[in-house]
């Protein structure tokens, strides 16, 4: 139970600047044309890192009670379940073709 973590201004600026840099990076990697599907993987990976930084240091999840962290993880997990199981259908459909 932490409650009131106070970050220093310097630290917050550091986090902000890191996020700016990562934004530049994610745009920059599109200029070098990584072959698919790795371009998507890289873009998502950078976005995930950025999201983790925001949640950990801006939203103070790093100092937060474990239950609130669990909530955040759960929501991501259930989103992944939803998309994962839906893809089991949409990617493996095998539609018949009429012969006449």
């Amino acid at each position: 139970m932490s409650g009131h973590h106070i970050s220093s201004a310097k630290f917050l600026w550091g986090v902000g600047i890191t996020l700016f840099m990562l934004t530049i990076l994610t745009v920059a990697v599109t200029w070098i044309h990584i072959p698919s599907p790795w371009n998507v993987v890289v873009a998502i990976a950078i976005a995930v890192v950025k999201a983790l930084i925001v949640s950990a240091f801006f939203m103070n999840l790093y100092w937060e009670s474990k239950f609130n962290v669990l909530l955040f993880v759960m929501s991501a997990a259930f989103f992944l379940l939803m998309i994962g199981i839906t893809l089991l259908d949409t990617l493996y459909r095998n539609d018949p073709i009429p012969s006449f």
């Binding site: 998502i44 976005a47 999201a51 925001v54 949640s55 939203m59």
Partner: peptide, 14 residues
Amino acid sequence: WHLVDIIWIFLFPL
């Protein structure tokens, strides 16, 4: 507000 930011962080590359 941070969550709104996070969602945009994903929307932008996607």
